[in-house]
């Protein structure tokens, strides 16, 4: 009875002014037509071009990001290379400076050695010369001494002398000689 009453209500309500649950075949038909039309027209004017350009843009952004990434990597690599080459150059410069310093040192010691030996040689030469001169002078002296001895001997022989005088004389000449 309850359900029959409520059913009656529903039916009468529907019959009078159209209830909210009434199905209208005309509206169904128009909905199908409208929706299919909308689907087709939007597919043509909107979905295809917009989805394509969305995809394009996404790809573009992706590519740009990737490009930026590679560019960044390149730049980093370049900086590293630069650093390395700078280090290398510095090392090279250091090496060159060291080398030249070493060379200069060597040169210095060489020159020093050379001059030392030179000086030594000069000193030697001078010594030799002096010795030679000495010897020469000695020889000359010897000759003079001999001459003097001979002359004094002649003098003694000319002047007739006794033994004492002779001895005195010889002694005197000998002293003179050593003084000279």
């Amino acid at each position: 009875m309850i359900s029959a009453n409520l059913l009656m209500l529903a039916l009468s309500g529907g019959g009078e002014s159209g209830g909210p649950l009434d199905v209208n075949p005309g509206v169904i038909l128009w909905t199908v037509v409208t929706f299919v039309f909308l689907l087709l027209i939007l597919k043509k004017i909107a979905w295809k071009p917009i989805l394509i350009s969305l995809k394009e843009r996404e790809n573009f952004i992706k590519e740009s990001l990737e490009k930026a990434e590679t560019a960044k990597k390149d730049a980093e690599k370049m900086i590293a290379d630069n650093k390395q080459s700078m280090l290398k150059a510095e090392e090279e410069a250091k090496k060159i400076i060291d080398q030249s310093r070493e060379f200069a040192e060597k040169l210095k010691s060489q020159i020093l050695d050379e001059s030392k030996t030179h000086a030594k040689k000069m000193v030697e030469d001078a010594t030799n010369e002096i010795e030679r001169k000495n010897a020469e002078a000695f020889n000359k002296l010897k000759e003079q001494v001999a001459d003097i001895a001979i002359q004094s001997a002649e003098k003694i022989l000319r002047e007739n002398l006794d033994k004492d005088k002779q001895v005195k004389l010889v002694k005197k000449y000998m002293d003179d000689l050593s003084k000279n």
Partner: peptide, 17 residues
Amino acid sequence: GLDISITKHVVFMWIAV
């Protein structure tokens, strides 16, 4: 024999379109 009159809701569907 079908009633396919244009109704208020059909008009608003068209406005939406």
